[in-house]
Amino acid sequence: MDVNMLQNILLTIATASTPLLLAAIGELVVERSGVLNLGVEGMMVIGAVCGFAGAFITGSPWIGALAGILAGVLLSLLFGFLALSLATNQVATGLSLTLLGIGLSGMIGEDFVGRAGIRLPRLDLPVLSDLPLVGKLLFGQDPLFYVSIALTAAVMWFLFKTRTGLTLRSIGDNHKSAHALGINVLLYRYLAVMFGGACAGLAGAHLSLVYTPQWVENMTAGRGWIALALVVFASWRPWRVIGGAYLFGAVTIGQIHAQALGIPIPSQLMSALPYLATIVVLVLISRDRRLTVINTPASLAQPFVPDR
């Protein structure tokens, strides 16, 4: 295997990992505020179709990406209205968001099936991008790759170095205490949920504008759920999400390459690998009950109704 091929494989892994990282880092912030939004898959698939549609109609993939973000935010607001303002069961509400998202995306995307998409251009810097070995890896990837890394760093800084981040974490730990101190619990949670929606929408747009620039129904194929698992896997710590996302990206790319090489294992089994890997990883990380208790935001998925 020569160096260029290795670089290419690494590039595809990064491309496969970026949407997972984007969606997971958004959901991480949501869960740190004590809200469990199981609708990531739904917001992602809506982001994918709206991203594609935005780019297809305007001709600009950038507008497509914005459309994806916007669609994710809108859907997350629907979740917020129910789970936050109406204090509904978060598990059921998140599920319904996913079902609705899949349904809506199928309806919106009907006219776009089979159309050629527009790809977000890769970064191309003179000289730098052509450096051997690392040129393309560091300076030649799609813009959303850089966004995902920067976003992760920003979330780390926000959660652990700013007072607003501290407040957000405190709400996730104990919303009753936070309310008693006069923190506007619902406002923080709305903002967190919207951030999660934006990230999931952008992650979806990455699928239809970078990963495979086209619209295929259900093209997220469970990536939203894997992102949810990644948050658990990362023990709600941003830097670990990067590791988890790239691990899954590698598994996904690995099985595709293995299929291409004609390894005599049924393709369906290979395709099932990322899902099986998710289960295995979840088992490994959750085994230690003590650690799980310490790491999980204590008010996660608990509805909160302020009394006044």
Binding site: L78, T93, L95, L97, L99, G103, G106, M107
Partner: peptide, 12 residues
């Protein structure tokens, strides 16, 4: 596909 939308809305 509208059927799916109805189903999702109904649960909401």
């Amino acid at each position: 596909k509208v059927a799916r939308v109805f189903q999702g809305l109904l649960l909401f």
